[in-house]
Design a protein around this nucleic acid. Sequence first.
DNA 1: TGTGAAATATAACGCTA
DNA 2: TAGCGTTATATTTCACA
Lengths: 155, 155
Amino acid sequence: MGKPQLDQVDRLLLGTLSTDADVSNKTLAARLGLAESTCAYRVRALREAGIITGTRAQLDLALLGYPLQAIIMVRLGSHTMTNVNQLYDALVSAPGVIQAFHVAGADDFYLHVAVENAEALRDFVLQHVTSHRVVRQTETHLVFEVRGGAGVLAT
Amino acid sequence: MGKPQLDQVDRLLLGTLSTDADVSNKTLAARLGLAESTCAYRVRALREAGIITGTRAQLDLALLGYPLQAIIMVRLGSHTMTNVNQLYDALVSAPGVIQAFHVAGADDFYLHVAVENAEALRDFVLQHVTSHRVVRQTETHLVFEVRGGAGVLAT
DNA sequence: TGTGAAATATAACGCTA
DNA sequence: TAGCGTTATATTTCACA
């Protein structure tokens, strides 16, 4: 499976689906001026090529009762491979974690979390982050707002 | 429209759909032991309540030709409301931006970006970030890996 | 690309607890 | 009020021409 060849139509399809995967094949085809069968075929091909890895429902976290978001920067004291991987596994499975970035630099992980309130945020850090021995330091930054970006297909 | 009352079934539905929104209503109902009509009704209700805001296709950015990801921290020199908002608007519409966080603390924005290579990353910062007068400083951190977290429904 | 048959989704209905 | 099962209608999916 070599590098897939993507034309402009594929990029338009991906751009649309990455914004709204609910569009029916019918309207998707009409929007791009494709035959329905062709459109369905191309979307399926993009899935089989692994370009589209899946689709996810987006949730309103505030309405769900988690109106407070934060980025928690996590710095380790020891960087053996097992330490890093075990902590990573633990962090991504902690309840409230939306995304976990393993990064280069002074910090090792950035955690994007959503919680009920400030108290829950404090408890999260204590229970799921600093409770790990290997964690040397954390820094918690309140998130005012998150916006989805234009993505890589905006050009 | 007050605060919606979510029971355990709703939380299971949301947990499933936020992981894989492609499941058919039929299998979704079977998995939770609901009648198909009930299942469809509840999902629709969650949409109408605004809990489910939409669904998005997830893309494999590396396969798409953007194998390099980074977090760019952006610090402003002036924080008037118009400055902040105008920059925010510009940043989220810059090609390659996956997400933009407006945060509290020394930095103002964290940008999660995906690019073709290191050169493109440099160009992105120069063209779409530091080119704005109001930007005083940036700090770019390479992302080794991103993982989706357990989410808020993991409990 | 177009077509047609099978599968599925949607929405409305009445019935029950 | 919420769940269920059943309809009829619309739509999607898939294999094939």
